[in-house]
């Protein structure tokens, strides 16, 4: 990674190019790398010395009982945690080789690279079309984008999330009026026109019924390869079905990180097997 670093940096906007770069030097490029990352909410320490290497282009799931720091970790990667105002951190988080916690980092650029899907679908109180275009318009503020270009962007994004056929006749309708499952898909769709490299998903299915969960999981699987996906879930079956690698966290510490099947079938740490077998959590 170190020697391919500068080149990867030049290509941060294109995950596919980064993958080729990585293949050339036969080192899997890292999407997210943290070193001794600690985080406090006020005086409460939520994360302890987290060292994680999340690989590009695959789906990594994060599991663990409530309050173990999965969501906190996720929300640290795009620094959305800082909205709270009483968050303090030490250590580093590198996204595509850039230290995003550095003082001179423009949050806007960081968040352009990293899309986030929240626990509850949170479409903006705008039309479906404006929701999809929201991020794109923000990152192209001041530029004139023609109506037909916008139409293409909307159609592509909605097709990518398998929502186009459902909403194509009502693009001007309010996004908040859609069923929850469609809202969550829309929340994924609005990330795509910004062309992020990484998608962070914070229990994206927890507000959905089983059918909606299945549909969104299918979608996440479709997006695999085009995006690096880090998904937090409470649902172990989901983690097992829908991820390549799996991270198990407990009380703010990373206990285990490996291929999903290894973590589930032959966990190294007894705490992991306890959790997977349902002894706590």
């Amino acid at each position: 990674m170190a020697d391919s670093g500068p080149d990867t940096r030049a290509d941060v906007g294109a995950p596919a190019a980064a993958t080729e770069e990585g293949a050339a030097v036969s080192v899997a490029p890292l999407a997210i790398e943290t070193r001794e990352f600690n985080l406090w909410y006020g005086t409460f320490q939520a994360l302890f010395d987290v060292d994680l290497k999340i690989k590009s282009g695959i789906i990594t799931s994060m599991i663990g009982p409530s309050g173990c720091g999965k969501s906190t970790f996720l929300r640290s990667c795009n620094r959305i945690n800082e909205r709270l105002g009483y968050v303090r951190t030490t250590g580093t988080i590198d996204i595509m080789g850039h230290d995003v916690l550095a003082d001179d980092v423009e949050l806007l650029q960081v968040r352009k690279q990293i899309g986030m899907v929240f626990q509850r679908p949170n479409p903006l109180p705008l039309s479906i079309r404006d929701n999809v275009l929201f991020g794109h318009r923000i990152h192209h503020a001041g530029e004139k984008v023609s109506k037909s270009d916008e139409g293409e962007i909307v159609e592509k994004a909605l097709r990518d999330v398998l929502l186009w056929d459902e909403v194509k006749d009502d693009l001007g309708g309010p996004a908040t009026g859609l069923p929850l499952e469609a809202q969550q898909k829309l929340c994924i769709a609005r990330l795509l026109p910004v062309k992020p490299a990484i998608l962070l998903m914070d229990e994206p299915c927890s507000a959905l019924d089983p059918k909606g969960t299945e549909a969104v999981e299918e979608l996440i699987w479709e997006l695999r390869g085009d995006y690096t996906i880090l998904i937090v879930t409470h649902n172990m079956a989901q983690a097992r079905r829908a991820s390549d690698e799996c991270v198990f966290m407990l009380l703010g510490k990373v206990i285990e990180h490996g291929l999903t099947e290894d973590v589930f079938l032959s966990p190294e740490d007894p705490q992991t097997s306890d959790y997977i077998e349902g002894r706590y959590g």
Partner: peptide
């Protein structure tokens, strides 16, 4: 105005003023 709107817009990279003008004030 629900905070989830602000959070969603900020996560998309919107600045404080963009969030205010495009999301909060219309809502």
């Amino acid at each position: 105005v629900p905070d989830s709107y602000r959070e969603a817009a900020e996560a998309l990279g919107a600045t404080r003023w963009q969030v205010t003008r495009r999301v909060v004030i219309p809502a």
